[in-house]
Amino acid sequence: TTVHIGNVTYHFDNPEEAVKWAKEMAEKLGLRIEIHGDTIRVE
C-alpha cells in the first residue's frame, strides 16, 4: 500500500496501518485523503 503526500511516497506492508497513518497526517495538515485501491492520496 502506498501513501502519497505531495511529491513524497510512503510504502506500508499493512493497508490498515497505511489508512490510519494517512488519516492522522491529513488531520495534522488540514487535508483530506482519497483511497484508490491500494493507493492513498493526502491532498
Rank of each mutant, 00 (worst) to 15 (best):
H11I: 10
E16I: 11
E16T: 10
L31D: 07
T39V: 13
I33R: 00
I5S: 01
R41Q: 05
N7S: 11
Y10E: 03
F12Q: 00
F12R: 00
A18P: 00
V19I: 15
H36Q: 13
W21P: 00
E43D: 11
R32N: 14
A26W: 03
V8H: 14
I40V: 05
I35R: 04
K28S: 10
N7Q: 10
R32C: 12
Y10G: 02
H4E: 08
H36V: 13
T9M: 12
A18M: 03
T1N: 04
A22W: 02
H36M: 13
L31V: 12
G30T: 02
P15G: 08
I40T: 02
K23T: 14
E17T: 09
N14R: 05
V3L: 03
K28E: 09
M25E: 04
D13C: 12
L29R: 04
I35Q: 05
N14W: 05
H11Y: 15
E17C: 11
D38M: 09
V3M: 01
G37Y: 05
V3P: 00
K28R: 12
H4L: 13
Y10W: 08
N7T: 10
K20E: 09
T39W: 07
N7F: 08
E24F: 15
P15Q: 13
L29P: 03
F12L: 01
T1E: 01
D38A: 12
G6V: 04
H36T: 12
T39S: 11
V3G: 01
G37C: 07
T1I: 14
V42Q: 02
D38W: 01
I5M: 08
G6S: 05
L29K: 05
T39D: 07
Y10P: 00
E27P: 03
H4I: 15
R41H: 14
E24S: 11
T9H: 10
I5A: 03
I35G: 02
H11R: 08
K23H: 09
R41F: 15
H11T: 09
I33H: 02
I5V: 09
F12G: 00
H36P: 01
A18V: 02
E17D: 13
A18E: 00
V3F: 01
G6M: 09
E24P: 01
V19Q: 08
A26G: 05
V19C: 05
W21C: 04
N7L: 09
I40D: 01
N14I: 08
K20L: 10
V8C: 14
V8Q: 13
E17W: 09
V42N: 02
T9C: 13
K28I: 13
K28F: 10
A26I: 03
T9P: 05
T39P: 02
H11K: 09
I35C: 08
T1Q: 04
N7M: 09
L31Q: 07
K23S: 10
T9K: 13
K20V: 07
E34W: 07
H4G: 03
F12N: 00
E34V: 15
K23A: 07
G6T: 03
I40K: 01
